[in-house]
Protein backbone atom coordinates (compact mmCIF):
# COMPACT_ATOMS: atom_id res chain seq x y z
CA UNK A 1 0.00 0.00 0.00
CA UNK A 2 2.95 2.30 0.48
CA UNK A 3 4.20 1.90 -3.02
CA UNK A 4 1.88 4.38 -4.72
CA UNK A 5 2.87 6.99 -2.17
CA UNK A 6 6.55 6.35 -2.85
CA UNK A 7 6.02 6.66 -6.55
CA UNK A 8 4.07 9.85 -6.05
CA UNK A 9 6.89 11.25 -3.95
CA UNK A 10 9.52 10.37 -6.50
CA UNK A 11 7.44 11.86 -9.30
CA UNK A 12 7.03 15.01 -7.22
CA UNK A 13 10.79 15.33 -6.82
CA UNK A 14 11.40 14.63 -10.47
CA UNK A 15 8.85 17.25 -11.48
CA UNK A 16 10.38 19.78 -9.14
CA UNK A 17 13.85 19.20 -10.58
CA UNK A 18 12.53 19.50 -14.05
CA UNK A 19 10.58 22.61 -13.12
CA UNK A 20 13.64 24.28 -11.67
CA UNK A 21 15.81 23.21 -14.54
CA UNK A 22 13.36 24.60 -17.02
CA UNK A 23 12.92 27.79 -15.12
CA UNK A 24 16.63 28.30 -14.95
CA UNK A 25 17.39 27.42 -18.51
CA UNK A 26 14.86 29.96 -19.67
CA UNK A 27 16.53 32.49 -17.41
CA UNK A 28 19.97 31.77 -18.84
CA UNK A 29 18.86 31.82 -22.42
CA UNK A 30 16.95 35.00 -21.74
CA UNK A 31 19.91 36.77 -20.29
CA UNK A 32 22.90 35.41 -22.07
CA UNK A 33 21.76 34.14 -25.39
CA UNK A 34 21.85 30.49 -26.22
CA UNK A 35 24.95 29.66 -24.27
CA UNK A 36 24.74 25.94 -24.64
CA UNK A 37 23.78 25.64 -28.24
CA UNK A 38 25.61 28.64 -29.60
CA UNK A 39 29.05 27.08 -29.39
CA UNK A 40 28.68 25.18 -32.63
CA UNK A 41 29.32 27.34 -35.62
CA UNK A 42 28.39 30.67 -34.08
CA UNK A 43 30.62 33.68 -34.64
CA UNK A 44 29.40 35.49 -31.58
CA UNK A 45 32.09 36.32 -29.08
CA UNK A 46 31.67 34.26 -25.91
CA UNK A 47 32.65 35.92 -22.69
CA UNK A 48 32.46 34.28 -19.28
CA UNK A 49 32.07 36.51 -16.25
CA UNK A 50 33.07 34.87 -12.96
CA UNK A 51 32.08 36.65 -9.74
CA UNK A 52 33.56 35.91 -6.34
CA UNK A 53 30.18 34.88 -4.98
CA UNK A 54 27.11 34.40 -7.13
CA UNK A 55 23.83 35.41 -5.61
CA UNK A 56 24.80 38.43 -3.52
CA UNK A 57 23.51 41.85 -4.43
CA UNK A 58 26.94 43.35 -5.08
CA UNK A 59 27.73 40.97 -7.92
CA UNK A 60 24.16 40.98 -9.16
CA UNK A 61 24.49 44.70 -9.77
CA UNK A 62 27.80 44.15 -11.59
CA UNK A 63 26.02 41.58 -13.73
CA UNK A 64 23.39 44.16 -14.66
CA UNK A 65 26.07 46.37 -16.18
CA UNK A 66 27.72 43.41 -17.88
CA UNK A 67 24.42 42.41 -19.46
CA UNK A 68 23.92 45.91 -20.74
CA UNK A 69 27.35 45.90 -22.39
CA UNK A 70 26.83 42.41 -23.78
CA UNK A 71 23.61 43.51 -25.48
CA UNK A 72 25.29 46.60 -26.83
CA UNK A 73 28.22 44.67 -28.28
CA UNK A 74 26.37 41.52 -29.32
CA UNK A 75 28.29 39.26 -26.97
CA UNK A 76 27.29 35.87 -25.68
CA UNK A 77 27.63 36.35 -21.94
CA UNK A 78 28.03 33.49 -19.47
CA UNK A 79 27.55 34.45 -15.85
CA UNK A 80 28.22 31.82 -13.23
CA UNK A 81 30.16 31.49 -10.03
CA UNK A 82 30.19 29.63 -6.74
CA UNK A 83 27.20 30.51 -4.58
CA UNK A 84 29.29 29.78 -1.50
CA UNK A 85 32.31 31.77 -2.64
CA UNK A 86 34.61 28.76 -2.72
CA UNK A 87 37.74 29.60 -4.74
CA UNK A 88 38.21 25.92 -5.61
CA UNK A 89 34.96 26.05 -7.54
CA UNK A 90 36.10 29.20 -9.28
CA UNK A 91 39.17 27.37 -10.52
CA UNK A 92 37.08 24.43 -11.66
CA UNK A 93 34.70 26.67 -13.58
CA UNK A 94 37.63 28.30 -15.34
CA UNK A 95 38.85 24.84 -16.35
CA UNK A 96 35.42 23.93 -17.72
CA UNK A 97 35.14 27.13 -19.70
CA UNK A 98 38.58 26.60 -21.13
CA UNK A 99 37.47 23.24 -22.45
CA UNK A 100 34.22 24.72 -23.75
CA UNK A 101 36.32 27.15 -25.73
CA UNK A 102 34.98 30.49 -24.59
CA UNK A 103 36.92 33.47 -25.95
CA UNK A 104 37.45 35.58 -22.85
CA UNK A 105 37.22 34.74 -19.17
CA UNK A 106 36.82 37.60 -16.70
CA UNK A 107 37.71 36.47 -13.19
CA UNK A 108 37.07 38.15 -9.86
CA UNK A 109 39.44 35.93 -7.85
CA UNK A 110 38.37 35.17 -4.33
CA UNK A 111 41.84 33.81 -3.62
CA UNK A 112 44.37 34.81 -6.31
CA UNK A 113 46.80 31.94 -5.66
CA UNK A 114 44.14 29.24 -5.86
CA UNK A 115 42.81 30.29 -9.25
CA UNK A 116 46.21 31.24 -10.69
CA UNK A 117 47.12 27.88 -12.19
CA UNK A 118 43.71 27.43 -13.79
CA UNK A 119 43.99 30.91 -15.30
CA UNK A 120 47.46 30.21 -16.63
CA UNK A 121 46.27 26.99 -18.21
CA UNK A 122 43.41 28.88 -19.83
CA UNK A 123 45.85 31.38 -21.29
CA UNK A 124 48.06 28.59 -22.54
CA UNK A 125 45.01 27.15 -24.30
CA UNK A 126 44.48 30.44 -26.10
CA UNK A 127 41.75 31.98 -23.97
CA UNK A 128 42.16 35.62 -23.01
CA UNK A 129 41.97 36.09 -19.27
CA UNK A 130 41.36 39.33 -17.44
CA UNK A 131 40.60 40.03 -13.82
CA UNK A 132 38.05 42.42 -12.43
CA UNK A 133 36.97 43.50 -8.96
CA UNK A 134 40.09 41.95 -7.40
CA UNK A 135 43.43 41.36 -9.03
CA UNK A 136 45.05 37.99 -9.61
CA UNK A 137 48.72 37.15 -9.85
CA UNK A 138 50.50 39.13 -12.55
CA UNK A 139 51.31 36.24 -14.90
CA UNK A 140 47.82 34.77 -14.77
CA UNK A 141 45.98 37.59 -16.57
CA UNK A 142 46.60 40.19 -19.24
CA UNK A 143 44.61 43.12 -17.84
CA UNK A 144 43.00 44.03 -14.57
CA UNK A 145 39.86 46.15 -14.53
CA UNK A 146 40.79 48.19 -11.52
CA UNK A 147 37.95 49.83 -9.66
CA UNK A 148 40.00 50.31 -6.51
CA UNK A 149 43.13 48.75 -5.07
CA UNK A 150 43.21 47.19 -1.63
CA UNK A 151 45.25 50.21 -0.59
CA UNK A 152 42.59 52.64 -1.80
CA UNK A 153 39.76 50.68 -0.20
CA UNK A 154 41.45 50.38 3.20
CA UNK A 155 42.48 54.01 3.31
CA UNK A 156 39.15 55.13 1.89
CA UNK A 157 37.30 53.36 4.71
CA UNK A 158 39.49 54.90 7.40
CA UNK A 159 39.35 58.37 5.85
CA UNK A 160 35.58 58.30 5.55
CA UNK A 161 35.34 57.28 9.18
CA UNK A 162 37.76 60.01 10.29
CA UNK A 163 35.86 62.60 8.31
CA UNK A 164 32.57 61.66 9.95
CA UNK A 165 34.02 61.47 13.45
CA UNK A 166 36.28 64.48 13.18
CA UNK A 167 40.02 63.98 12.78
CA UNK A 168 40.88 64.48 16.46
CA UNK A 169 38.42 62.02 17.94
CA UNK A 170 39.92 59.53 20.36
CA UNK A 171 38.44 56.17 21.10
CA UNK A 172 38.13 52.57 19.99
CA UNK A 173 37.16 51.18 16.63
CA UNK A 174 36.39 47.59 15.74
CA UNK A 175 36.55 45.73 12.45
CA UNK A 176 33.92 43.06 11.74
CA UNK A 177 35.41 40.99 8.92
CA UNK A 178 34.26 37.77 7.25
CA UNK A 179 36.23 34.55 7.84
CA UNK A 180 39.76 34.51 9.19
CA UNK A 181 40.79 33.06 5.83
CA UNK A 182 39.03 35.62 3.59
CA UNK A 183 41.88 36.99 1.48
CA UNK A 184 40.27 40.21 0.28
CA UNK A 185 39.19 41.25 3.74
CA UNK A 186 42.60 40.40 5.17
CA UNK A 187 44.27 42.53 2.50
CA UNK A 188 42.03 45.49 3.33
CA UNK A 189 42.69 45.07 7.05
CA UNK A 190 46.44 45.18 6.39
CA UNK A 191 46.07 48.57 4.72
CA UNK A 192 43.62 49.87 7.30
CA UNK A 193 45.99 49.25 10.18
CA UNK A 194 48.68 51.81 9.19
CA UNK A 195 45.99 54.33 8.28
CA UNK A 196 44.40 53.89 11.70
CA UNK A 197 47.79 54.09 13.41
CA UNK A 198 48.19 57.61 12.04
CA UNK A 199 44.92 58.70 13.63
CA UNK A 200 43.99 58.87 17.29
CA UNK A 201 41.65 55.93 16.98
CA UNK A 202 42.65 52.62 18.47
CA UNK A 203 41.83 49.34 16.78
CA UNK A 204 40.34 47.40 19.70
CA UNK A 205 39.71 44.08 18.02
CA UNK A 206 38.80 42.28 14.81
CA UNK A 207 35.90 39.84 14.78
CA UNK A 208 35.39 37.02 12.31
CA UNK A 209 31.70 36.07 12.14
CA UNK A 210 32.02 34.34 8.76
CA UNK A 211 29.44 34.94 6.06
CA UNK A 212 26.71 34.55 8.63
CA UNK A 213 24.25 37.37 9.27
CA UNK A 214 23.25 36.21 12.76
CA UNK A 215 26.85 35.95 13.92
CA UNK A 216 27.69 39.34 12.42
CA UNK A 217 24.80 40.93 14.31
CA UNK A 218 25.74 39.08 17.50
CA UNK A 219 29.41 40.06 17.34
CA UNK A 220 28.52 43.69 16.71
CA UNK A 221 26.17 43.74 19.69
CA UNK A 222 28.87 42.20 21.86
CA UNK A 223 31.56 44.68 20.95
CA UNK A 224 29.14 47.54 21.58
CA UNK A 225 28.59 46.27 25.15
CA UNK A 226 32.23 45.36 25.64
CA UNK A 227 33.91 48.62 24.60
CA UNK A 228 32.23 51.62 26.26
CA UNK A 229 34.50 54.01 24.41
CA UNK A 230 33.63 52.59 20.99
CA UNK A 231 33.41 55.25 18.30
CA UNK A 232 33.13 53.31 15.11
CA UNK A 233 32.63 49.90 13.55
CA UNK A 234 33.95 48.88 10.15
CA UNK A 235 31.80 46.18 8.61
CA UNK A 236 33.85 44.96 5.68
CA UNK A 237 31.82 42.11 4.27
CA UNK A 238 28.41 42.01 2.64
CA UNK A 239 26.80 40.64 5.80
CA UNK A 240 28.86 42.34 8.50
CA UNK A 241 28.16 45.91 7.36
CA UNK A 242 24.38 45.72 7.64
CA UNK A 243 24.80 43.54 10.73
CA UNK A 244 26.89 46.20 12.46
CA UNK A 245 24.48 48.95 11.41
CA UNK A 246 21.53 46.97 12.74
CA UNK A 247 23.30 46.34 16.04
CA UNK A 248 24.06 50.03 16.51
CA UNK A 249 20.50 50.97 15.65
CA UNK A 250 19.05 48.42 18.06
CA UNK A 251 21.33 49.52 20.88
CA UNK A 252 20.03 53.07 20.46
CA UNK A 253 23.52 54.47 19.98
CA UNK A 254 22.94 55.61 16.39
CA UNK A 255 25.00 58.73 15.83
CA UNK A 256 27.31 58.02 18.78
CA UNK A 257 28.83 54.93 17.21
CA UNK A 258 29.38 55.30 13.49
CA UNK A 259 29.33 52.39 11.09
CA UNK A 260 31.26 52.28 7.88
CA UNK A 261 31.94 49.70 5.25
CA UNK A 262 31.47 48.59 1.68
CA UNK A 263 28.01 48.03 0.31
CA UNK A 264 25.75 48.73 -2.62
CA UNK A 265 23.65 51.84 -1.96
CA UNK A 266 20.31 50.05 -2.21
CA UNK A 267 21.25 47.73 0.65
CA UNK A 268 22.14 50.57 3.00
CA UNK A 269 19.57 53.26 2.12
CA UNK A 270 17.54 52.44 5.22
CA UNK A 271 20.49 53.01 7.55
CA UNK A 272 21.76 56.14 5.83
CA UNK A 273 18.33 57.72 5.96
CA UNK A 274 17.91 57.06 9.69
CA UNK A 275 21.40 58.34 10.46
CA UNK A 276 23.06 55.15 11.73
CA UNK A 277 25.42 55.22 8.80
CA UNK A 278 26.70 58.66 7.90
CA UNK A 279 28.75 57.68 4.88
CA UNK A 280 30.14 54.62 3.21
CA UNK A 281 32.20 53.87 0.14
CA UNK A 282 31.91 51.86 -3.01
CA UNK A 283 32.42 52.28 -6.72
CA UNK A 284 29.83 52.23 -9.43
CA UNK A 285 29.30 48.47 -9.58
CA UNK A 286 27.05 48.58 -12.64
CA UNK A 287 29.77 50.50 -14.48
CA UNK A 288 32.35 47.99 -13.29
CA UNK A 289 30.47 45.13 -14.93
CA UNK A 290 29.87 47.24 -18.02
CA UNK A 291 33.54 48.17 -18.32
CA UNK A 292 34.72 44.60 -17.78
CA UNK A 293 32.76 43.38 -20.79
CA UNK A 294 34.05 46.26 -22.90
CA UNK A 295 37.63 45.41 -21.96
CA UNK A 296 36.96 41.76 -22.81
CA UNK A 297 35.58 42.72 -26.21
CA UNK A 298 38.46 45.10 -26.97
CA UNK A 299 40.98 42.46 -25.99
CA UNK A 300 39.38 39.76 -28.13
CA UNK A 301 39.05 42.11 -31.09
CA UNK A 302 42.70 43.04 -30.82
CA UNK A 303 41.95 46.70 -30.10
CA UNK A 304 43.53 46.47 -26.69
CA UNK A 305 47.19 45.53 -26.63
CA UNK A 306 49.79 45.55 -23.87
CA UNK A 307 51.17 49.05 -23.54
CA UNK A 308 47.94 50.84 -24.43
CA UNK A 309 47.28 53.94 -22.41
CA UNK A 310 43.59 54.47 -22.96
CA UNK A 311 40.44 52.64 -23.92
CA UNK A 312 37.11 53.81 -25.26
CA UNK A 313 34.38 52.04 -23.34
CA UNK A 314 30.89 52.83 -24.61
CA UNK A 315 28.95 55.21 -22.46
CA UNK A 316 31.82 55.57 -20.01
CA UNK A 317 33.91 57.32 -22.63
CA UNK A 318 37.68 57.34 -22.72
CA UNK A 319 39.27 55.63 -19.70
CA UNK A 320 42.94 55.63 -18.83
CA UNK A 321 45.11 52.54 -18.55
CA UNK A 322 47.98 52.56 -16.09
CA UNK A 323 50.40 49.71 -16.75
CA UNK A 324 48.03 46.79 -17.25
CA UNK A 325 45.30 48.24 -15.06
CA UNK A 326 42.20 49.67 -16.70
CA UNK A 327 41.05 52.36 -14.30
CA UNK A 328 37.33 52.67 -13.62
CA UNK A 329 37.61 55.94 -11.76
CA UNK A 330 37.33 57.19 -8.23
CA UNK A 331 35.73 55.52 -5.27
CA UNK A 332 32.27 56.91 -4.58
CA UNK A 333 31.38 58.11 -1.11
CA UNK A 334 27.68 57.74 -0.39
CA UNK A 335 26.02 60.10 2.07
CA UNK A 336 22.49 61.10 2.93
CA UNK A 337 22.76 63.88 0.37
CA UNK A 338 23.61 61.80 -2.67
CA UNK A 339 22.42 58.25 -1.98
CA UNK A 340 19.03 58.72 -3.64
CA UNK A 341 20.74 59.42 -6.96
CA UNK A 342 21.97 55.84 -7.19
CA UNK A 343 19.92 52.79 -7.87
CA UNK A 344 22.00 49.62 -7.81
Amino acid sequence: MHRPICWLASIAIAVSIFGCAKHDSSQTTGTSGETATASAGSHKLRVALLPKIKGISYFSSCFKGAEEAAKELGIDLIYDGPTDGNPRKQAEMIEQWTIDGVDVICVAPNAPDVVASAMQEARAAGVSVITWDADGTAESRSFFVNQASAQAIGEGLVNAMLEDLGPDTEGDVVIISADATSENQNAWIETMKPALAKSKLKLATIKYPGENASNALADSQDVISKYPNLKGIFGISSVSFPGAAEAVEQSGKGGKILVNGLSTPNDMKKFVQNGTVRSFILWHTVDLGYLTIHVAKALAAGELKPGATSLKAGRLGELSIVGDNVMLGDILVFTKANIDQYDF
Binding site: S25, T28, A36, G55, D80, G81, P82, Q96
Partner: peptide
Amino acid sequence: VSRYWRSDEL
Protein backbone atom coordinates in the same frame (compact mmCIF):
# COMPACT_ATOMS: atom_id res chain seq x y z
CA VAL B 1 24.65 20.85 -14.95
CA SER B 2 27.51 23.26 -14.77
CA ARG B 3 28.34 23.09 -18.48
CA TYR B 4 24.79 23.03 -19.77
CA TRP B 5 22.90 25.41 -17.51
CA ARG B 6 25.82 27.40 -16.13
CA SER B 7 24.16 27.60 -12.80
CA ASP B 8 25.81 26.76 -9.53
CA GLU B 9 22.57 26.93 -7.55
CA LEU B 10 20.94 24.43 -9.88
